[in-house]
Design a protein around this nucleic acid. Structure first.
Lengths: 134, 134
DNA sequence: GTAGCTGCAAACTCTTTGCAACTCT
DNA sequence: AGAGTTGCAAAGAGTTTGCAGCTAC
């Protein structure tokens, strides 16, 4: 199982200090950080990193499919490492994000796409909900 | 069954010429127009309409829940009238959008949210696919 | 050595907003 | 009449990019 860094090198990227830092930040993130967050966390490690580099790196990673870009109806993007496939439930009151998986839905997605004459390439499912109080 | 205009009036909006035009454009749209598109189509009817008004109107309509804002991973928003609930399959090659409905998925969404302790408020499901050639 | 990467600042794109004039009701 | 709406132009926010210097390989 290749590490993130190895995957990047395989893709022909140079392993600069900045990239290592950003990859580390992404690897340690337990949330879905905005570019701003990735920038701040990276800066805490290496204060010389610029916003431009963070943007450039995230775009490259997204293109390589190592990272997923989300738009949870905010006016900016959030990113997360592309680990196992899952979906999101966004708490409309707090903005917090819960991940979930569901095998049945995976199968149905495939089926729906096929029925429409398409091969499923990607998919987003976002539930927006209010916490039920007891 | 109230018309769009009636719903707006009920919500306390004044029925100006510009708004009538924009509502007409939205009502006639068979696609998921960008703000730019709504602007152009509205201008064809009434050339005095400004971009600012289109933005303002779409935002109000979205707030009233009469219109849905989409972000299909472009760098701008698309809108569509909030008619019956459905989801989208986006052709990754042509960018064209196909609508679909699926009762089973509706039920599962509800179930998943409830299992996580949430009341489902809204939901987005987007499939991205490649057309299967025969 | 050199292709690729970086920081900086300027540029871009989409969207929002302050304001004075105007218009539905 | 008056609150709400509009067009305009300027401002905002997030993101991208040109360039000269730097760095991994």
């Amino acid at each position: 199982m290749a590490t993130l860094e190895e995957l990047c090198v395989q893709a022909g990227l140079k392993m600069t200090g900045q990239r290592k830092t950003i990859l580390k930040v992404l690897g340690e993130a337990e949330d879905h950080p905005s570019v701003e967050s990735v920038y701040e966390r990276s800066r805490a490690v290496d204060p010389s990193i610029s916003m431009a580099t963070v943007y450039r790196t995230l775009n490259i990673l997204a293109e390589l499919g190592l990272v997923t870009r989300h738009e949870f109806h905010e006016n900016f993007s959030r990113f997360e490492l592309n680990m196992e496939h899952h979906h999101h439930l966004i708490d409309v009151e707090s903005g917090s994000v819960i991940e979930f998986q569901n095998e049945e839905i995976e199968l149905m997605k495939q089926q729906i796409a096929r029925d429409l004459g398409y091969e499923l390439v990607e998919c987003r499912l976002e539930l927006y909900g209010k916490k039920i109080k007891n």
